[in-house]
Nucleic acid binder design. Structure first.
Lengths: 191, 191
DNA sequence: GTCTATAATAGGATAGAC
DNA sequence: GTCTATCCTATTATAGAC
């Protein structure tokens, strides 16, 4: 019962606020003081809910990944979409609901946290963000050049779209998601 | 005459060491103390040669960009290479001589330094790293789909290869440069 | 569960002697 | 041009009262 209460706990508030900061400013760029101040608690109070900064970071990434997994997996099944439509829809979903700095996030996962946690997080990350794309490529393997496996393709696709997910990054390039997917599928060379 | 002396000045030592640290660990991840320690000078001494950390960072990026510009520009002209061969050679050159964390670098350029410097650096960066690719696309525009201009294509190409330039990043994906260029040009869909 | 107080550290930067 | 000494600030983290 108490689990289903609508009341937002301090722990949840911390997680929500930390998500915004970590995903936008990275691990080093985020301070526990700032998070605490923003939600109106003292900084030491944060250490009652989380062991330290790293465990808070991990909790945020686990939360974010579980949301991504649930939603990304359901998109191709939702309606009958072809490969290109699915990629476009999934990428749009990512940019709308996860407008993160994935480049920074992938870097932080490797450099800012302990090695064991780093490996565990990478698996969670892979399952949440990469597997849905790998599954999609598998489902349409008849249309895809057979030289490379779906995991590698998913990995590459994610690296390609990652810099476009960050809203702060729009200054660089103004390719639409449709164009990015088109280039990924068909290349830039004339037929 | 004194400019051409083989003796390595302290200023040059600082620049060389700072390059390694900034490009691998990013702006925040690099400390002036560490740089000084590594070359056997005191940290305050560094402030005799550079106004502050930011101006050192800018000097490093200017140095790095001028090297890139010189070499990248010369590759397509060097021998008569077609589009694919040029892209492969230029990308190999980049990974060999600039094995940097470009994602972190691009992020630092926008977030860690003053706005004026940021804009100036972005122009230098664009001229050094993007223009050679844009020129190449222009030179082979007959083979390229005409929907997008060469600047946009160069930008996109650089974003695609950037995560593969960082040697620490190899764990993720093991696509070869040849495969990356092939995918970029021809896409992943069967003919 | 939240607070105050404070420790411990690290980092950028300056003053001033040599 | 390089050093020692030192300041200032920001940050993570802990101790212990309420």
């Amino acid at each position: 019962m108490s689990e289903n209460m609508a009341r937002v706990t301090t722990r949840q508030l911390i997680l929500q606020t930390a998500e915004v900061h970590f995903m936008r400013d990275g691990y080093k760029g985020t301070s526990t003081r700032q998070i605490a101040k923003e939600i109106g608690i003292t900084q030491p109070n944060l250490y009652h809910h989380f062991k330290n900064k790293e465990s808070l970071y991990i909790a945020v990434l686990e939360m974010v990944a579980s949301k991504a997994l649930e939603d990304l997996k359901s998109i191709p099944a939702e309606v009958q979409l072809n490969l290109e439509e699915s990629l476009i829809k999934m990428t749009h979903y990512l940019r709308k609901t996860h407008p993160y700095n994935f480049s920074v996030m992938m870097n932080d996962m490797k450099t800012e946290i302990s090695q064991e946690s780093s490996l565990a997080l990478y698996r969670i990350f892979q399952k949440a963000y990469l597997q849905p794309f790998a599954d999609l490529f598998d489902a349409h393997s008849d249309q895809i050049r057979s030289d490379y496996d779906s995991q590698l393709l998913a990995n590459h696709f994610f690296l390609v779209i990652a810099p476009y997910m960050n809203p702060d990054n729009l200054s660089y390039s103004r390719l639409t998601i449709e164009a990015i997917v088109d280039f990924f599928l068909n290349g830039v060379v004339k037929d």
